[in-house]
Amino acid sequence: MVRLILLGTLSALFFSSTFILNRAMSLGGGHWVWTSSLRFGYMLVFLSIWIGFSKGSKYLADIKEVFIRHWLFWIMAGSVGFGIFYSLLSFGASYAAGWIVATTWQLTILATPVVLMMFGRKVPTRGLLLIALIFTGILLVNVEYAASATVREVMLSAFPVLVAAFAYPTGNQMVWEAVRGKNGRIPHIESRVVKDSFARVLLLTIGSVPFWIVLILVASPPPPSSSQLISTALVALFSGVIATTIFLYARHLCVRPSEIAAVDATQSMEVIFSLAGEIIFLQGVFPGSIGTTGVALTIIGLVAYTRMQTAK
């Protein structure tokens, strides 16, 4: 369990670059559609080059075969777990500071047990009280934000992130179920490539492509700036490739629902990393007493939750 938590925390460090860079792009006038879609375009290129270089063209051909054989599953999982998740997260960053979005994003810890139950998995009930503590911290952070923002801004930042918080674990759990093949509603995908974290991320990225094409056509955003092209490339590398691969690797190592919940809970560390990064790089303002209390409750809930899971 300790290894899983350490891997999850490391992924949270790289994930935090998302909130910092997305906020920087928003402040620079970058459109949220490009912030989200370009990331996965870069990921498609980065992952294909890396896998082709490290595993060979035959391995890439195997990945292509797995995608074609189960194309509908990968499009659904990629659209939910990557498309809906990240487009809404990028949209929310247009209306609130990165650390606020990062804190609100921790609703995914509350969402994970719900998602697990949706897939017929049992969840330890005693952990739900600590999840409620984390949720209280998130509410306090948004209460402080609401004091200096309009109701519209709060809703446009919080509600999309709420939906994203459910979309991400749903997409990940779909893949987890497909690899293990014990869910009658999801196809059992038997291949060596689905046991590889990089390959799974590439498959989900390919599956999300139709979603991004439709989003760009519908939103018709203005062309991205050169700085947005560079920033999204960095997000794709740090968060999309490195963080996502580490996170999915940790999830793949899980054998019990409680371990999955613990790994997902480590993402609360994104709050600390994002807050520190925004203060250092974007001259962000340290939160007030209510916001600080909210952040503290979120982290205390995380530590207590993971300690409880480790003690089992």
Rank of each mutant, 00 (worst) to 15 (best):
T9I: 15
F15T: 09
S16T: 07
S16W: 13
N22Y: 04
G30H: 04
H31I: 05
W50P: 05
S54W: 10
K55W: 00
A61G: 06
I63L: 13
F67S: 04
H70Y: 14
F73P: 03
G81H: 09
L88E: 08
S90P: 02
A93W: 00
I100E: 03
T103D: 03
L110N: 06
A111T: 02
G120M: 11
T125Y: 15
G127H: 12
L130D: 11
L130A: 05
L133R: 08
T136P: 01
G137S: 15
G137R: 11
L140E: 02
V143T: 06
S148L: 05
V151T: 04
E153W: 08
V154R: 01
V154L: 05
S157T: 05
P160L: 10
G171A: 06
G171K: 03
N172H: 10
M174S: 06
G181I: 08
G184S: 14
G184A: 14
H188A: 12
S191R: 09
V193E: 06
F198A: 04
S208D: 13
P210V: 07
F211D: 02
I213A: 04
V214D: 01
S225F: 06
S231A: 12
T232I: 04
S239Q: 13
R251N: 12
R251E: 13
R251Q: 14
R256G: 00
P257K: 11
E259P: 02
V271R: 07
F281I: 03
G288K: 04
S289C: 00
T292A: 11
T293L: 15
Y305Q: 07
M308E: 14
